[in-house]
């Protein structure tokens, strides 16, 4: 518990203070986004075993929830963020029937759902509402420093949820469901409710950070916020580091997204391929990520 809180405090402090020392705020912002998304994947995959290949659907729903609230309801950014979170949770509720599917079927259906979202939002017939394929411009609320700060606050809240899941009965119940739903039922756990809560919690995380993303960049196309790259990256970062831990996804983002930014920007298509293959390799050979190596060597990792 202590070491988990220290880890969280260090990460949040670094995210909050680095812009003072380092000029590329956009890069730091993207790190904050992926740190948050990787923990969101951690909630649903690490604690229930559902691999959310369409996780970006919640992110995009949040981005558009924010944008619609700003454009049509003329809300200020913070109340608009509440709309972003609500939009993602609503989408999560609509998609709860997917939780009846198992394994690859869930992953594929979730991917299809996120692509359907993209098609709906970018439909030219909805241009009056969503701006269709032409994209959203929210220059009226553009405020990089404030939105960066709010993103860090959302990261902090997400990490706090993870600390809770790691150290609470509820987190134990979710892991029990992941390991064996039948035995979990006979331990008195409401399996359907547990999965639904984890699913909606992960939707809330992605929707909130998606809303801040829309606020931070202020100008974007539907393809930007529904790009499958968000799902793949968030999953591979979480898996690489180690799911169901707090440190794992953090390490995954710092290492892999660091490498990506150091050498991958010039050839992003290779990275999608490499990361796609990395997911398969990790699921097969190192399902508990690199933190499991540390644990094997006798270090306790929160």
């Amino acid at each position: 518990m202590r070491s988990a809180l220290v880890t969280v405090a260090v990460v949040v402090a670094a995210a909050a203070l680095l812009p003072l020392a380092y000029a590329n705020q956009l890069l730091l912002f993207n790190f904050v986004v992926f740190l948050t998304l990787a923990q969101g994947v951690n909630i649903i995959y690490g604690f229930t075993g559902y691999l959310p290949f369409g996780y970006v659907g919640f992110f995009g729903a949040g981005a558009y929830g924010f944008s619609l609230a700003v454009m049509h309801l003329h809300l200020a950014p913070l109340p608009a963020l509440a709309c972003a979170a609500a939009a993602a949770v609503l989408l999560g509720l609509l998609l709860t029937p997917l939780l009846r599917l198992s394994g690859a079927y869930f992953a594929i259906a979730n991917l299809a759902a996120s692509q359907a979202m993209l098609q709906i939002v970018s439909n030219p017939n909805l241009t009056d509402i969503t701006k269709g394929p032409y994209g959203v411009s929210l220059s009226g609320v553009f405020s990089p420093n404030l939105s960066y700060g709010v993103a860090v606050a959302i990261l902090a809240a997400t990490l706090a949820v993870m600390v809770f899941l790691r150290h609470s009965r509820f987190g134990l119940a979710l892991q029990a469901i992941r390991e064996d739903p039948v035995t979990a039922g006979m331990a008195g756990i409401d399996v359907v409710r547990g999965r639904t809560v984890a699913w909606l919690l992960s939707a809330l995380v992605a929707g909130s950070i998606g809303g801040v993303f829309a606020w931070y960049v202020s100008v974007f196309y539907p393809e930007t916020v529904f790009s499958p790259e968000f799902s793949i990256f968030a999953i591979v970062f979480a898996l690489f580091g180690g799911i169901a831990t707090i440190t794992g996804p953090i390490l995954g983002v710092l290492i892999l997204y660091g490498i990506y930014n150091a050498i991958g920007i010039s050839a992003p298509q290779y990275f999608q391929l490499i990361y796609g293959m990395l997911i398969m390799g990790l699921v097969l050979f190192l399902p508990n990520g690199i933190v499991s190596l540390f644990k094997r060597w006798g270090f306790d990792v929160p």
């Binding site: 009965r169 134990l172 119940a173 892991q175 390991e179 039948v182 006979m186 331990a187 008195g188 756990i189």
Partner: peptide, 27 residues
């Protein structure tokens, strides 16, 4: 309640946690 012919305990959880979660949720 019941025991299983082929038990499927929560493998990565400790023995204590396996029982703890049932005590917390099952009573």
């Amino acid at each position: 309640n019941r025991t299983f012919q082929v038990p499927k305990p929560f493998l990565p959880l400790t023995v204590r946690q396996n029982v703890e979660v049932a005590a917390a949720y099952g009573r």
